[in-house]
Amino acid sequence: MKKDTLNLVTRSDYPAPVELTRAQLKGWVRVVFWGLRVYIVVMIALVAIGFARGHA
């Protein structure tokens, strides 16, 4: 089973995870996200049509 086999190192040897704050979506990034939404909807529809017609 898993054992606690700590070898002694300082905490500074293991950096903390970066702070996470919500990104502000502005400009082209906002456009890209809307493009992504459209892409996902279109592709799901196309795949559904493809499966219905027996392409896959």
């Binding site: 898993k2 700590l6 190192v9």
Partner: peptide, 11 residues
Amino acid sequence: KIRAKDQARVV
């Protein structure tokens, strides 16, 4: 703790 041990090996 265990990850720290792995890192100690690398260091």
